[in-house]
Each structure stands twice: as structure tokens, then as C-alpha cells.
């Protein structure tokens, strides 16, 4: 996995408390296939998402995005839909962890979440945490990922980073 530097796409905007049951309904959890999960992503609150979403697009939401079930299928479904970043006022904590672990970029930024409208062109610089609404010409500052998270992503996610640590440990012994 290469380190994610920038994202650019159209904003799809949602409200507060978007839960994992609507991101990927449990009736599809008998599958682990990212493509199949993506084909049902958001369908219970936004039937048009699949049609309008283009690779690289950006989800913008309110408070507590990803609340509810711990299902990792939720960030997997969003990532497999081609979404390059989710910007929200806040994230539910399990969803936050899962997103980092599987390599879905997420940023907390209440001001951007307020200011960006559905359909706006948005760009994100992950190194600096700067979010730009290209349609409106406004820009917002989000907290960029801390170094250890960037390292984890650089190594290819949680599993790959643990594996590399284990191998480094072995070679020391």
C-alpha cells in the first residue's frame, strides 16, 4: 500500500449519527467480499449513492459517524466504493480504529463538515490536514494523522506493521 498523500473528489453529504447498520446492513454480512459489500453501501439511507459516487469522491458527515456495530465491513464497504476520505465532525471510536486498521482515510473537522455542501468539489492534503472546498474557495484545517498512524499506514496497515515488527524482533535475537 502506498502512503496516501492527497484526495480530491465530489462531496456526498450526510447528517449526524450515520450508523454502521445503514452503511452496510447486517443482511449482507454473510459476505466478506469488498465488492459485494460496496454494492450495498449506504443503500438504506441513500439509494442514489451507488449511482452518483465516483472513484475518489469524499463523504462528509456530522457527529458520531460510524456509530453502532463494530463490523469492519462498514469501512471496507466505503473504501471498496472508491471513497478516498471521510470527513466528519466526529467518529464513533470503533469505526475510527477500524478505518485506520484497514486503510480508509478519515479526518475530524467540524468546520469543514459545516461548510461543505453536497456536490461541492473537495480536496484534502493528508500531510498537512488542509481541506479545501474548491467550489466555494474556502479552506479548513483538520488535525493530520499522528506519526504512529502514518507509520502504520506506510507499512500497509495494522497487520503488516505487526508482521514487520515481529520479523525485526526475530532478526535481533
Amino acid at each position: 500500500m502506498s502512503v496516501l498523500k492527497k484526495a480530491c473528489g465530489t462531496a456526498h453529504k450526510y447528517g449526524d449519527h450515520v450508523d454502521t447498520d445503514v452503511i452496510i446492513p447486517a443482511r449482507y454480512l454473510a459476505s466478506q467480499d469488498p465488492k459485494e459489500l460496496a454494492s450495498h453501501c449506504m443503500e438504506d439511507i441513500d439509494k442514489s449513492f451507488r449511482e452518483k459516487n465516483r472513484p475518489g469522491d469524499i463523504m462528509v458527515a456530522g457527529l458520531n459517524f460510524g456509530c453502532g456495530s463494530s463490523r469492519e465491513h462498514a469501512p471496507v464497504a466505503i473504501r471498496a466504493s472508491g471513497v478516498s476520505c471521510v470527513i466528519a465532525k466526529s467518529f464513533a471510536r470503533i469505526f475510527y480504529r477500524n478505518s485506520i486498521n484497514i486503510g480508509l482515510a478519515i479526518l475530524e473537522c467540524p468546520a469543514a463538515s459545516e461548510g461543505i455542501d453536497d456536490g461541492d468539489k473537495v480536496s484534502v492534503d493528508f500531510d498537512t490536514g488542509v481541506i479545501k472546498d474548491e467550489t466555494k474557495g474556502t479552506s479548513y484545517q483538520a488535525e493530520p494523522f499522528p506519526p504512529f498512524i502514518r507509520d502504520m499506514i506506510a507499512m500497509g496497515g495494522l497487520m503488516a506493521s505487526l508482521k514487520q515488527q515481529a520479523e525485526a524482533g526475530k532478526s535481533q535475537n
Binding site: 463494530s70 470503533i94 480504529r97 477500524n98 486498521n101 505487526l162
Partner: peptide, 10 residues
């Protein structure tokens, strides 16, 4: 506390 599957696998 609850975690996702990757955390759990690790």
C-alpha cells in the same frame, strides 16, 4: 471494549 476484526486478528 469492542474492536474491529483486524484488531482482533492481530
Amino acid at each position: 471494549t469492542g474492536v474491529g476484526s483486524t484488531d482482533l486478528g492481530a
